[in-house]
């Protein structure tokens, strides 16, 4: 199972980029998610063949607003490629302490275009499975 991206919550994108030695020039794409009211900023790390997804809340009602207010910035989730989201969900369905949090569809060019995602929490750890539209 390949880690495709790491999701970091940010309350101040520039501050987080600077902390990682990055600038706005490294951001390949920013996408607003109207359902969760977050803006997603994508940075590719070619050395690791890995994306960083910076999740920035756009309002107090944003899904990660309280997380951002509490921690400023921090690790939010690990993103994995998935060939089959149903199978990925079933992998956790019967496990104690595992909960499906949501399923979303969004266009992210950095991830290949239109994608479906599945969020699962395994105790305190949030996992996101990403599948490109067929």
């Amino acid at each position: 199972m390949r880690i495709q991206h790491i999701g970091l919550v940010v309350s101040d994108l520039d501050e987080t980029l600077a902390a990682l030695g990055l600038t706005r020039a490294h951001v390949t794409e920013s996408v607003h998610d109207p359902v969760q009211d977050n803006t997603l900023h994508f940075v590719h790390l070619p050395e690791n063949n890995l994306w960083l997804e910076f999740v920035e809340p756009m309002s107090e009602r944003a899904s990660i607003a309280k997380f951002a207010a509490k921690f400023g910035m921090g690790l939010h989730h690990l993103g994995f490629d998935s060939a089959d989201l149903v199978a990925s969900e079933q992998l956790h369905a019967s496990r104690e302490g595992a909960f499906t949090l949501g399923r979303y569809q969004i266009e992210v060019r950095s991830f290949g275009g239109r994608i479906r995602t599945l969020f699962v929490a395994v105790r305190g750890l949030i996992l996101e499975y990403v599948k490109r539209y067929d």
Partner: peptide, 19 residues
Amino acid sequence: MVGLAVFIEKEFKRKLDLT
């Protein structure tokens, strides 16, 4: 909420649907 759902599952054997 995830922590609370884990707590309820452990304590009361009920699995909440967080979706």
